[in-house]
């Protein structure tokens, strides 16, 4: 070990390949996310960006290559994989709150069952987190009684309750009504400021500009462009990125 060796990346993908049948959805992906870094993944639908995000906690398996979190390679399955997933928070496009459990129970389930926390401690932790994302007064309701924006903020609290090393956001605002997008983005910006390591698949340029350290642009299963948010939005290098940006900028 030498002093000049770079600090190990918190998330590291090396030569990752994945196929869906004939479709080569991830092609030789190499990616490092440093501790505390906020990485935004952007790209047209079908580019593989959601798949990429989901491979990081192995909700999607990969064909070849390796993925490691905090220096440890992702286990294939079983208890070891479950343990590692507890360190990787995930927020889904469709919220996926447990429909039969109250808001509070949604947040406490992981700490109680996975970490063995006592119920009073878990309740305290959960109420604090729910307060922080602005839905503390909804704790005893069922998910279906909340708006989409509120549900997504609960989902963020549920992920945070596991004290994850890294948070994955898979298009967290794509299923939301426009007026609810900002309440979720605000929570995410706060998280970024506090130094959370984040991988965010999104088209929200406001978020990328405000919070991201780096943007990668994906198309057809490859990382086509990689730069700072400002450079990416004002001065895209590849025709593919230029074309994509011209479309979302005129529409959005």
């Amino acid at each position: 070990m030498t002093n000049s060796a770079p600090a190990p990346a918190l998330v590291e993908l090396t030569a990752v390949n994945k196929h869906y049948g004939a479709l080569h959805v991830l092609q030789e992906i190499n990616l490092r996310v440093a501790k505390g870094e906020v990485l935004v993944v952007i790209g047209p639908s079908g580019s593989g960006k959601s798949t990429l995000c989901r491979t990081i906690n192995r909700l999607e398996t990969i064909d070849t290559g390796s993925i490691s979190i905090d220096g440890k390679e992702l286990p294939k399955e079983g208890k070891a994989l479950a343990r590692l997933r507890a360190d990787v928070g995930m927020v889904f496009q469709s919220f996926n709150l447990f429909a039969h459990k109250t808001i509070l129970e949604n947040v406490t389930l992981g700490p109680i069952k996975v970490k063995g926390m006592s119920k009073p401690d878990a309740d305290k932790l959960a109420l604090g987190l729910l307060e922080r994302v602005g839905v503390g007064h909804q704790a005893s309701k069922l998910p279906a009684q909340l708006s989409g924006g509120q549900q997504q903020r609960v989902a963020i609290a549920r992920a945070l309750a596991m004290k994850p090393k890294v948070m994955l956001f898979d298009e967290p605002t794509s299923a939301l009504d426009p007026e609810m997008i900002n309440e979720v983005l605000d929570v995410m910006v706060e998280l970024a400021k506090e130094g959370m390591t984040m991988v965010v698949v999104t088209h929200e340029m406001g978020f990328a500009r405000k919070a991201a350290d780096r943007v990668i642009f994906m198309a057809d299963g490859q990382i086509v462009e990689e730069s700072s948010p400002e450079d990416f939005f004002t001065n895209p290098q590849t025709p593919r990125a230029k074309d994509f940006l011209s479309k979302i900028l005129t529409n959005g």
Binding site: L59, A82, A161
Partner: peptide, 17 residues
């Protein structure tokens, strides 16, 4: 929905739980 079990796996619950 598949999302329910994905969310459960994502917080670290093993298959049985």
């Amino acid at each position: 929905s598949v999302g329910q079990s994905e969310a459960a796996r994502a917080i670290g619950l093993p298959f049985m739980q």
